[in-house]
């Protein structure tokens, strides 16, 4: 087990390093850099920029050095907790991101929780009541959830929330609390606003998860070991929970790793539409203006989330499935 854990941690760090290189390369790929973008913007406002100033800016931002040097600087900084400097905001990246990361995590965690809590019982119901009206109804709702564009759902729900509950449009809290220190009422306001984005972002994931769980469980229900358990005289419900459901959980857990990036990337557009103070919109802007350290740190953060999600799901799988746990120990 320890060998497995060590190996897993090792590959995790290796893949994060590889991802950081990739992220950096991709950000550098478009022609020009932040200064070019900045100058274009200034020129479009009718300002003239001298060659010296451009060179000065380049030097100041460290853009005159080779990409390898820039990368090494950036990575070494991150290891010391310094994520670099955002050109756009003229602030350290950590300060720009600050609260947004926390709120992002709150929204995403709530969404994943929502997906699991809703899809699990519904998936089990659909599988155990195959080809009944309940099953058909759930399938229909599921397809509807998969097919509806998120931003449309977001607009509709925002309107309804405002109409019925008087919730303020957009954002994750009442405008009153923005930039205020955290308090109980601020947290409550967040909760009041949270359900709309969670519902919007989670719908597609929930629908997909219901379909997957239903298919997995149906497969398991026809397996021989289920007949064996029936032949023991087990009651249907207890049997379902102890044997096939336990097996059907495997893909459910393996999905955590897939779900995290899906939810996070899906959140970008929705966040933009709903003007949520999460990381999505900032990432979008940073990519557009080639604010390398800000964008890079963001992307790396997403990568960490994904890789970590995979790690957690692998550990859970190993805990749940003896075949994974014991064969990795190196039998024979």
């Amino acid at each position: 087990m320890y060998v497995y854990l060590m190996r897993r941690l090792f590959t995790m760090i290796a893949s994060l390093l590889a991802i950081s290189v990739l992220v950096f390369v991709i950000i550098q790929l478009p022609p020009g850099d932040f200064v070019t973008a900045y100058i274009t913007e200034l020129e479009s406002q009718g300002e003239m920029v001298s060659e010296e100033k451009i060179a000065f800016l380049r030097r100041q931002y460290g853009l005159d050095r080779s990409p390898v040097e820039q990368y090494v600087d950036w990575i070494l900084g991150i290891l010391q907790g310094d994520f670099g400097y955002s050109f756009e905001y003229n602030l350290p990246v950590t300060e720009v991101v600050g609260d947004r990361v926390l709120l992002s995590i709150v929204v995403n965690a709530a969404t994943i929780l929502f997906i699991y809590v809703v899809s699990f019982p519904l998936g089990v119901y659909a599988a155990t009541h195959q080809y009944t009206w309940g099953d058909y109804g759930l399938s229909f709702l599921g397809f509807l959830g998969l097919a509806t564009p998120n931003f449309l759902l977001a607009l509709v729900l925002l309107y309804l929330a405002n109409l019925w509950f008087g919730t303020s449009i957009g954002g994750l809290m009442d405008p009153l609390y923005i930039d205020q220190p955290w308090s109980l009422s601020k947290a409550l306001s967040v909760l009041e606003h949270l359900w709309v984005p969670v519902l919007v972002i989670g719908t597609a994931g929930t629908a997909g998860m219901i379909r997957r769980l239903r298919a997995n469980l149906l497969d398991e229900l026809n397996k021989q070991y289920v007949v064996t358990a029936k032949a023991k005289g087990m009651a249907p419900r207890r049997l379902l929970v102890k044997y096939p459901l336990r097996m059907a959980l495997n893909p459910f857990i393996a999905d955590i790793g897939n779900l995290l990036p899906q939810v996070v990337s899906g959140a970008v557009i929705v966040s933009a539409v709903m003007s949520l103070p999460t990381t999505g919109p900032v990432l979008l802007a940073a990519l557009q203006s080639q604010d390398i350290y800000l964008a890079g740190s963001f992307l790396l953060l997403l990568a960490v989330l994904t890789v970590f999600g995979m790690f957690v799901s692998d550990l859970l799988l190993a805990a749940l499935d003896p075949r994974i746990r014991l064969t990795s120990r190196g039998r024979r």
Partner: peptide, 26 residues
Amino acid sequence: PAMRSIRGGHVAMIFQDPMTSLSPLH
């Protein structure tokens, strides 16, 4: 409940393929 107490209690059954007839997770 009556049939369930007979199944496995009074009448037990074993199957052809021992590879699949036991749950792999327990």
